[in-house]
């Protein structure tokens, strides 16, 4: 049996275990069988279907989106440290979302999709700005240049958000609660809001899995191999921004998922993007479901923001990758 197949099997098992834990563990222990047992206790059924399950599904979707977006950004920029959070794209999405809430924007034909759409636009614009600025600074777009540019943009956008929060009145509570990054008490409506964009975004990236492999050897090389670089790059940027924007719109800024998951996936199962993308998707879902579980149980009954847990794991991984790349003398 080859490594890739093992990768898929292990990842799917991990995802099921995560879902099982996410559904059954909590202040009230609920057996997983409640999901399909029609004769189960009514309270348990309510807890599972109205509270736990939407939460698990949302956490899974957000984790999957951030992880596959991270994997795609890393491939596109040939930069193992790139992820929606480090690039400042999450902050851009936040600005889009906060602005939507702050100005009370509602576009009639978008309906409930107004928030994610504006969040996505924020993400895409930030991504394009970060890349153009980094290219302006250093044509070869070294790893450090991109990350520094990401920090500059995050700080700036962060202060924009703070400013909006300071100026806001009655919306304050809503924005703060959302900013901290959480998947709790969102319900099925958020899943419904996110799902179409996550499907489209994931498809856009998956369609470019082989192009991403080619681009690992540089844009010129990809061009010579027959990749329509301009078009493919745009598809990847739009797909990645869509996923980031949607994730931020439903759960706020959750850092490092896009960094940790693809890195672990590559380490365990190789760096062929045809498999890194789908495996990151599955593992991202599993990781965030578990992180959410930890965040709501570790100091129960208080809930920690989920971003705290991901940063707790993510920052050391970030440091480790950075160290290894510099040691290797890589880009």
């Amino acid at each position: 049996m080859n490594k890739t197949l093992i990768g898929y099997i292990l990842s799917i098992i991990a995802l099921f275990v995560a879902i099982w834990l996410g559904v059954s563990v909590g202040s009230v222990k609920v057996p997983i069988s409640t999901l399909w047992d029609t004769g189960a206790d009514a309270i348990a059924t309510n807890i599972v279907w109205k509270i736990r399950m939407p939460r698990v599904v949302l956490a899974g979707l957000v984790g999957a989106s951030l992880a596959i977006a991270g994997a795609a950004f890393q491939g596109l920029l040939k930069n193992p440290l790139a992820d929606p959070y480090t690039l400042g794209v999450s902050s851009g999405a936040s600005v889009g979302a906060v602005a939507t809430l702050f100005f009370g924007i509602s576009v009639p034909f978008l309906g409930i999709y107004t928030l994610p759409v504006f969040s996505m636009i924020g993400a895409l614009v930030t991504m394009l700005l970060v890349i153009s600025f980094a290219k302006l600074v250093d044509r070869s777009m070294k790893m450090e240049t991109i990350i520094l540019t990401g920090i500059i943009f995050s700080s700036f956008l962060g202060s924009v958000i703070s400013l909006m929060i300071a100026l806001t009145g009655e919306e304050l509570r809503q924005i703060i609660g959302w900013l901290l990054g959480s998947v709790s008490m969102r319900g099925w409506s958020f899943v419904q809001m996110a799902l179409p964009f996550i499907i489209i975004g994931t498809l856009l990236l998956w369609l470019n899995r082989r192009e991403l492999n080619a681009m690992l050897f540089g844009e010129e090389r990809a061009m010579h191999l027959g990749v329509n670089v301009k078009k493919r790059k745009m598809m990847i940027l739009i797909g990645g921004s869509m996923l980031t924007g949607t994730a931020v719109a439903v759960s706020g800024t959750i850092g490092f998922v896009g960094l940790v998951v693809p890195h672990m996936t590559r380490l365990l199962f190789g760096s062929d993007n045809r498999h890194v993308l789908p495996l990151s998707f599955i593992n991202g879902a599993a990781l965030l479901i578990v992180c959410d579980l930890v965040s709501r149980t570790i100091i129960s009954p208080t809930e920690l923001p989920i971003g705290v847990i991901t940063a707790f794991i993510g920052a050391p991984v970030f440091a480790f990758i950075f160290f290894r790349q510099r040691k290797k003398g890589g880009i």
């Binding site: 890393q74 491939g75 193992p80 492999n213 690992l216 050897f217 590559r266 190789g270 760096s271 062929d272």
Partner: peptide, 16 residues
């Protein structure tokens, strides 16, 4: 030539 991430020789050639 530049390359980020580790690719196997076969995968690299297969990109052709």
């Amino acid at each position: 030539h530049s390359h980020a991430f580790s690719h196997s020789v076969r995968d690299t050639i297969a990109l052709g």
